[in-house]
Design a protein around this nucleic acid. Structure first.
Lengths: 191, 191
DNA sequence: ATTATCTATAGATCTATAGATAATGC
DNA sequence: ATTATCTATAGATCTATAGATAATGC
């Protein structure tokens, strides 16, 4: 049952990607190691050859998902200025993002779980959030660096909160209204 | 082992209050019915005389916690205008609130869990969030009602996101910076 | 007599580990 | 020979229920 080194690396990567999807979809406690491994096409017992614990996998999966997200944001940021900010905000604050937590920002889906978990997962989230905030910071209008920084943090918080709220409320109209309100505050920071 | 009707009502209330605290502290999956009942001074089996399921208790606990929060906000709102907004924002966006999730806003602690759960819990959260947003709406500066509404939703999203982020990141300076950035954007909406 | 709570347990999970198996890679 | 994955299981949970117990309230 041994497989090639290449296959081992592929299997490990597949576990991380499967976990990144399933943890975001179901929450950290919503998916077990056995089901997760099954989704990755492997058996339960094989897991502990790759990772020390379920929590370690969460940290890697979170790092992986957020790294991809930051790369995407950096791609949009290449446009520069208002267009980039509108693109990032439009994608993030969309019904599409709201309806696909399994592919979306890990901070919104796993932030509360991770704040109760260990150092590794919290560090992965912190690195990812810092990456996203750094992209926003460069795109903020204005001259003063401290102002841009503050605006970036406040904007990021609003984006994260909006997606979480939009997913939690049971009123579709309100959900869309929240997304739109933050999208608009982003395009038009002067209220 | 039967108790008086009065005591039954007290026991039920005690379960709800204990649950409101423990669910916020540990997350929905982080505390079991048996431990929860133990915390409330009762035994496991007695639970199902009071509630149909753990999820029903979550809905009641969330409704209870958010109702209290809305009442507190309405108290601050009696001051009116900027002072009220500053008080609400100052309390919400504090290290104290960040460090005491068990007493804090249920949306930040349970929003992600509840978005994956049933109709009752989502409705309780929605009612609570609407109550908080309604308070903010009245306090927003400006004349245009639609603008005030949008500002209230965007502000609320930023507050919720800020607390979740402030709890999740592993960097105390960054955590405080996020809280301060949103507090400032609240006091000074023109950036 | 009714019933709120108790003890005890069913049945289904969960994470993690032990030891067997079989294919890679020296 | 080494080792990645497999099957099987330990031991600890979890939600929910069944039936016993004992105090209330008719």
């Amino acid at each position: 049952m041994k497989v090639s080194r290449e296959q081992v690396a592929l299997n490990r990567q597949r576990i991380v990607e499967t976990a990144a999807r399933l943890f975001r979809e179901k929450g950290y406690d919503g998916i077990g190691v056995a089901d997760l491994m099954k989704s990755a096409g492997l058996t339960h017992g094989g897991f502990y050859g790759h990772f020390d614990s379920k929590e370690d996998l969460l940290a890697e999966a979170t790092a992986h998902a957020l790294k991809k997200s930051v790369e995407r944001w950096e791609g949009y940021a290449a446009k520069g200025g208002d267009a980039a900010l509108t693109t990032i905000g439009g994608n993030y604050l969309s019904a599409e993002h709201r309806d696909h937590p399994e592919l979306g920002c890990s901070v919104t889906t796993l932030g509360a779980d991770i704040s109760r978990l260990g150092a590794k997962a919290r560090h992965a989230l912190t690195e990812g959030a810092c990456g996203q905030m750094a992209v926003l910071e460069k795109l903020m209008p204005g001259e003063d660096a401290a102002d841009k920084r503050k605006q970036a943090l406040a904007t990021y918080a609003a984006m994260v909160g909006a997606i979480m709220l939009a997913r939690a409320v049971d009123d579709e109209a309100l959900s869309l209204e929240i997304l739109q309100a933050v999208r608009q505050s982003l395009a038009d920071p002067l209220g």
